[in-house]
Simulated assay, not measured.
Amino acid sequence: MRFPDAEVTTLDLIRHGEPVGGRMLRGTTDHPLSERGWQQMQEAIEALGREGPPWDAIVTSPLSRCRQFAHWLGELHDLPVTVVPDLAEMALGEWEGKTHAEARALEAGVDRQAALWSDPSRHAPPGGEAPASFDARVGNAWQALLARPPGRHVLVVCHLFVTNAVLRQVLEQPISRLLAFDLPYAATCRIRHERHALGETSLVEWIGR
């Protein structure tokens, strides 16, 4: 601990594994995990809990590629599972369910995907959720989780953009850095939140294992 006598909550974030249909701009399109996706998540969870599952509770996005695994893991280890709607992935509008190439073909030579990755403060998916609104939505869910954690060690099953939004807020980066981390399927991160005499502090232990 950085702060003596702090009250500590540890939060492990895991991105979902590969969904059915392979890599695409999925957003809120509700595809379940593929067989490979289940394997990726099981391997990641085994690596996190080599000495037995350390979590007191699981929190999950409502989308199938997160929710189904969270409920399976909760039943396996008798852990409570809470579905948080605001942890759903960013809505991608016209890009939903399309491959990166198919989405670029809609843009008539303008690479709006590259623009979004470069600076989400100035660009948004066509017909989709504004990055600032998405960031605020995830931020509200994250702050509620910190204020009322369901245990001392919590697993959060979520998405690439959601993980990015959480890390952006913990690191206090500008919205232009909202999508700074390009994490693979089933990548994990750990954040330690400490309540102490001077207030509250969130610390990143590691990103992207």
Rank of each mutant, 00 (worst) to 15 (best):
R2T: 14
F3H: 13
P4H: 06
E7V: 07
V8E: 05
V8M: 02
V8Q: 06
D12Q: 03
L13P: 01
L13H: 01
G17R: 01
E18A: 12
E18N: 09
P19A: 09
V20W: 07
G22I: 07
L25S: 10
G27N: 07
T28E: 09
T28R: 13
T29W: 04
T29L: 11
L33H: 04
S34W: 06
E35V: 12
R36Y: 03
W38L: 12
I45W: 14
I45D: 11
E46A: 15
L48S: 07
L48P: 08
L48E: 13
G49Q: 15
G49R: 13
G52N: 12
P53H: 10
D56P: 14
A57P: 11
I58V: 15
S61L: 12
P62Q: 08
S64P: 08
C66S: 14
R67L: 10
A70C: 09
A70D: 07
H71Q: 14
W72Q: 15
G74R: 06
L76C: 06
L76H: 12
P80F: 05
V81P: 04
T82K: 14
V84P: 09
P85R: 10
D86F: 03
E89G: 04
M90P: 01
G93C: 02
W95I: 03
T99M: 03
H100A: 14
H100Y: 13
R104Y: 01
L106F: 04
L106W: 05
G109Q: 02
R112C: 04
Q113Y: 14
Q113P: 04
A114C: 03
A114T: 08
A115E: 11
S118A: 15
H123R: 07
A124C: 08
P125E: 09
G127L: 05
E129G: 02
E129T: 01
A130F: 02
A130Q: 09
P131V: 01
A132R: 07
F134P: 12
R137E: 09
V138P: 06
G139I: 08
N140V: 13
N140Y: 10
A141S: 11
A141H: 11
W142R: 06
W142A: 03
A144W: 09
A144N: 15
L146W: 08
L146T: 03
L146K: 12
R148L: 10
P150G: 05
R152C: 12
R152L: 14
R152V: 11
H153V: 05
H153E: 10
H153A: 10
V157I: 14
V157E: 11
C158E: 11
V162Y: 05
A165S: 15
V166R: 02
L167A: 00
R168L: 00
Q169E: 04
V170D: 07
E172A: 13
P174F: 00
I175P: 01
I175R: 01
R177Q: 02
A180W: 04
D182C: 01
D182Q: 11
T188V: 08
R190G: 02
R190Y: 02
I191S: 05
I191H: 02
R192Y: 01
R192K: 06
R192M: 05
E194D: 04
E194A: 05
R195M: 05
H196K: 05
A197T: 11
L198G: 15
T201N: 06
S202H: 04
L203R: 01
E205R: 11
W206F: 10
I207N: 00
I207R: 00
I207T: 00
